[in-house]
Amino acid sequence: MKFTVENLDGITIVSALPKVLDASNAMDFKADMGHILEESSRVVFDMSNLKFIDSAGCGALITSLRRLKGSGGILKLYDVQKQVRSVFELVRMHKVIDIYNTRQEAVSSFSQEE
């Protein structure tokens, strides 16, 4: 799985997520994302490309969140699409991951926390 990774003032922004994140590719997502997360502590996922997620996909995001938290890092999301948002609400993902509307909001939230 290929992602686009940018670095902006020490913040890693991962975009070009797959269109679908379900049980068929959740394992690949976890493995490939693992490499990116190893080298970063402040991470933002651009969710605009992701149109469909299932429980396994949510599980993959939680795995990413836990990996980062384990090493003192933070994960934030922005531009979450409608279906994904509905599923997040069902499994209360919005309670455990910070979600922003835009990249700008997500990025600036880091400086506000300092």
Partner: peptide, 15 residues
């Protein structure tokens, strides 16, 4: 299902 972010599976039946 556990919703506190500590579990990454077990959501399917709930959904």
């Amino acid at each position: 299902p556990v919703f506190d972010g500590s579990k990454d599976d077990g959501f399917g039946l709930h959904i």
